[in-house]
Design a protein around this nucleic acid. Sequence first.
DNA 1: GAGTTTGAAACT
DNA 2: CAGTTTCAAACTC
Length: 763
Amino acid sequence: MDTPERNQIAAPISKFEDSPVFNFINSLSPIKPVKSAHIAQTFNSLSFVSLPSIFTSPHVSSHKESRFLRRHNFSDPSKPEFSSVNGNKVSTNEEVMDADQLCGNSGKPLEDFDPRSSIGKASFERNNGHSELAIELPQTLKYGCGSPDCDPTPCGGMCQIEQKKEEAGCDWESLISDAADLLIFDSPDDTRAFKGLIQKSLDPGTSVCASLGSQFSQDDVSDLQKKQFVGSDDSGEHETDDPSTQPEEASKLNGMDQKQENLANTSFKDCMGSNASGEMDNEGGTSIPVPSKTLSNLHRGMRRRCLVFEMAGVRRKNMDDGSNCSSSMLSQSDGTFVPNDKQLVPLKPGNDSSRRILPGIGLHLNALATTSKDYNIVKHETLTSGRQLISVPSSSGSYLSTIEGQEPVNKSLALNSSDRETDPAENGFQALEDASQASAYAISEELNQSSPKKKRRRLEHGGETEGCKRCNCKKSKCLKLYCECFAAGVYCVEPCSCQECFNKPIHEDTVLATRKQIESRNPLAFAPKVIRSSDSLPEVGDEPSKTPASARHKRGCNCKKSSCLKKYCECYQGGVGCSINCRCEGCKNAFGRKDGSALIGMEAELEEETETLEKSVVDKNLQKSIVQNDEEYLDSALPVTPLRTCRQPSQLSFPSKTKLPRSSFLTIGSSSGLHTSQIFGKPNFPQPQSKFEKKFQTIPEDEMPEILRGNCSPTSSSIKTASPNSKRVSPPHCDFGSSPSRRSGRKLILQSIPSFPSLTPQH
DNA sequence: GAGTTTGAAACT
DNA sequence: CAGTTTCAAACTC
C-alpha cells in the first residue's frame, strides 16, 4: 500500500492541474486559466453534460447535471478530505498540498460559491467525526486514480490516474491490483467526501449514507468518465503504439467532448447501469449498482474498479442495513476496506442468490448474443470477470440491479476478490473466461472460479465458445466493428486469434474512446442489429409470445450473391427475415423474404414452411440446432426462470436457428422469443446461436432503443420497452441478463441507465 | 489450413 | 449520399 503507490501519488499530484476538476475550477475562477489540453477535455466533458446523449435519455441529462454539481462540490470536498488525510499520512499530505495548491486557486472561487464553503467545513467535520473517513481518504488520494472513483477527488483522482498510466502505462492495472484495496477505499471515500460536502447540510448520518449511495454511484460514473477521458488522453500517449488508436485518439481529441459524454454514459452504464436503475428505484436506499459496474469492469483493472464499486455497494448495503450508515458504514468500510475483497465477500453470501441473477447487466446487446456466458447472470463473476463487457449494462441490467443489485454486486465482489486474491491480475481474463464458462454451464460460481478447466469446457462445448465471441482480426486491432468481440461490447479473450488486439482491459481507455467515436458516428452502432419489427410486444417477461415475433434487421441487408441464404446475410445470420429495409437481391431468406413473407403474419405455417426450407437450405448445423432448439424451446417456454434456467437451456438451444427463429419467434412470439433468444443467445451455438442470439438480442435491443428514444426510464417506456424491461427486471433473470448483456441492453441501457442513477443521486 | 467469396464497415 | 476500399467472417476446397 504505502510503498509503491505513494511514490506514484506524488506524481499524480502534479497532475491535479490536469484533472478535470481542476480545470473546471480554473474555468470558474478568474485567477488562473487552465493549463493543459486535459483541461479542455474536462471542460468538454462538462460541456457534454449539457449535450444530449445519443439516446437522449432524460437520465443522461440529469446525470450530467449531477456531474457538474459534484465536481463543483468535489473541489471543495477534496480539500477537506486532503486535510483530513494530511493528518493521517505525510505522503498524502504532499499530494494534498499539491491538490490544495492546484485547487487552491479554484478553491477560493469555489468557496465563494456558497455550497463549497459550507461543504468544505462539513467535510472536515465529518472527517473529524469519523476517523474512518480520514483514514480512508488518504488511501483514496494515493490510489484513487486507479479507481474510477477518482472523480470525487477530481484533482487527486485524475492526477493519480494519469500518473499511473504514465508511469506504469498498462501496468497501472497491476498497480491497481496491488492497491486494489486502496482504490476501493478511495472510491468510497470520495463518495463520502462528496456526500459530506453535498449533504453536510443534510445529516451526516443516514442521510449521508443514502446520499453516498446515490452519489457514489454517480461519482463512480464520473470517475469512470474521468478515467476514460484521462485515460484516453494518456492512453493515447501510451497506446500510440497502436496506429489505429492514434487516429482514434485524434478523433477523440476532436470529438472527445461528445464522446466523453457517450463514454461517460457508457462508463456510467457500465458502472452504474444496473445500479443506476436500481438506485433510481431505491433512491440511494441500497446501492446495488455495483454488479453492473463489476460486469462492465470485467477486465482486471476493471475488476478493481468493480471492486471499488462493489465496495461502495457493500457499504451502501451496510448503510441500508443499519440506519446509522455513517458511523456503521465507516467502521465497517474501514474494517472491510483494507481486506476489501474478503470483507465484501462475506457480505455477498447473504445476497448471493439474488446477486447472481443480476450479472447480465454489463453486456452489450451484441455481447449478449455472442456471449451466452456473460449472459448467465448466475455468476456475477462470469459476467463481470468472464467476458468483460466493455460497455454498459443494459437497461435490463439496471433492472436486475435494482432487483438483485446489491447482492449480485457483493457476490461479484466476493468472487472478484477471491479471484484477485488467488489469481493475480494476469489470471483475470482466464478466470473471467472460466467463470463465464462455468456460468454458461450453470456451474456453481465457486467451482467456476476455482477451476481453470472451465475455459476448456467452453471450448469443448463449442457453442459456448461462441458465447464468448472470438475474433480473428488482423488489421482492425479489434477496435472496429469488424471485430465481433468489439462489436459485441466484449473484450477479446484468449480464444481470440486476433493480432495487435487493443480490445483488452489494458486498453480500456482506447476501447471506450473508440466506442465513443463509433457511436458518435452511429449511435446505434453497438445496438443490436436485429430488432423486433412489431413494437407491440415487449417481451412480457417470461410469458410466451404475445405478439408474433417479428424481428427485423435494423438497417436491412444488402446481399447480392448470397440470396440471403448464408450467414453473409446479417438478416439470415440473425435468424430474421428480410424486410423492406433490405436492399438485397434475389432474396430467399428462409426466415422471411423481403417481399412479403412477413415473419409476423407467417406464424406456424410460415414457420413450418421456413423450417422445411431452412432444413433443406440450412446446414447440418441447423439440424443439430433444431434438436437443441427443441430443448431450449421447452426451457424457454417453461419458466421464465432467470438466467440460470436460461443458461442451461440456452447452451443447448442455440443451435436451432432455423426452428427457433421461426417457431420460437412466431409461436413463442416476441416475449418468449426474447427470453429464448437471450437464453439461447449466449449459450452456445456458434452459428445458429449467433443468429438466434442476435435475433434475440437484437430484439431486446430494439426495444431498448425505443425506450431510450421514447422513454428513457427503463420502466417508463410504454408498452414494448417498458414491458420487456419490466419483465426482465422482475422475474426473469434470463431476460434481464440476456437483454442487458445483449446489445440492446448496452446501448439503451447505457444511455438510459446513466441518467437514472444520476437523477436519484443528484438529489 | 489455405484460399476465395461475401457483404458490412469504414473511408473518401 | 454514393462510390470505393478495407476488413474479417463465412464459406469452399
